[in-house]
Amino acid sequence: MNLPKTSSTFFDYMGFRSTIADKFELTLPLQTHLLQDDGTIHPGVFSTMLDISMGATISIETSSFATTINLNLSFFDLLPKDIYQAETKILKHEGKYVTAEGTIFTEDGVLIAKGIGTFKATPNKQK
C-alpha cells in the first residue's frame, strides 16, 4: 500500500510530527510562531491539524487519496499548552465519500477542538 505523504515544507514549518503504526497519529509541540498577539493559538492551526489527521486516516484506511470537501469545526480552548494530539475515526464510508471525526487533546486530556469533515476518496493507482 502507498502511504500518504505526511511531510512538506508547510507541515515542517507548523511543527507537526506524525507516526503510522496501527493508525495515523499526529502531534504538535507548542512553538512561539503559532501564537497570536494575545498569546492564544490561532484556530487555523487546529483546523489544519484536524484536516491533516482526518485526511491521512482516510487515505490509510481506504488506500485512497483524500480530498477535503467540507469541514465543520469547534474550538474549546485556545490557550497555549505544551503538546497537542489529534485523534480521528471514520464515521461513514459510502462510495467515494468518507465522513470522519477528529478531536484534538492536550497531553493531560483537555479537549481543544473537534471537527467533522467530508472527503472525496480517490483510489491510489499502483504503478
Rank of each mutant, 00 (worst) to 15 (best):
I104T: 00
F75R: 12
S7R: 04
K92V: 05
L50D: 03
K89T: 11
M49C: 08
T67H: 12
F16M: 03
E61G: 07
K92N: 03
T106L: 09
G109R: 09
S59G: 09
F65C: 12
M1H: 07
K96F: 14
N72D: 15
A21D: 13
S47N: 10
D77C: 13
D108C: 11
D108H: 10
S64I: 00
V98Q: 01
L79S: 14
L28T: 02
S8N: 02
F65D: 12
D51R: 01
K5L: 15
L111E: 14
N72H: 13
F24C: 05
D77M: 07
K5P: 02
I116Y: 14
E101Q: 14
T32Q: 15
S7Q: 06
T122D: 06
F24S: 05
P4I: 04
F46L: 02
D108L: 10
L28Y: 04
D38M: 10
Y13E: 03
N72P: 11
F105I: 07
T27N: 11
S74G: 10
G55N: 09
K125G: 02
Y84P: 00
T103D: 12
I58V: 14
L111C: 15
K92L: 11
H42K: 08
S18F: 02
I41F: 00
F65I: 02
G117S: 15
F10G: 01
E25M: 08
I104E: 01
P29T: 03
Q126S: 05
T19R: 12
S18I: 04
F105D: 04
T106H: 02
G102I: 09
T122K: 10
F46W: 06
F76L: 09
K125Y: 09
Y84H: 00
G102M: 05
L34T: 05
L35Y: 06
K127A: 12
S47I: 06
T62R: 08
S64L: 00
M1G: 06
K81N: 10
T118M: 15
A100L: 06
K81A: 12
F46M: 00
I104L: 07
I90E: 02
N72M: 05
I41M: 10
T122S: 14
S7G: 07
F10K: 02
L50H: 07
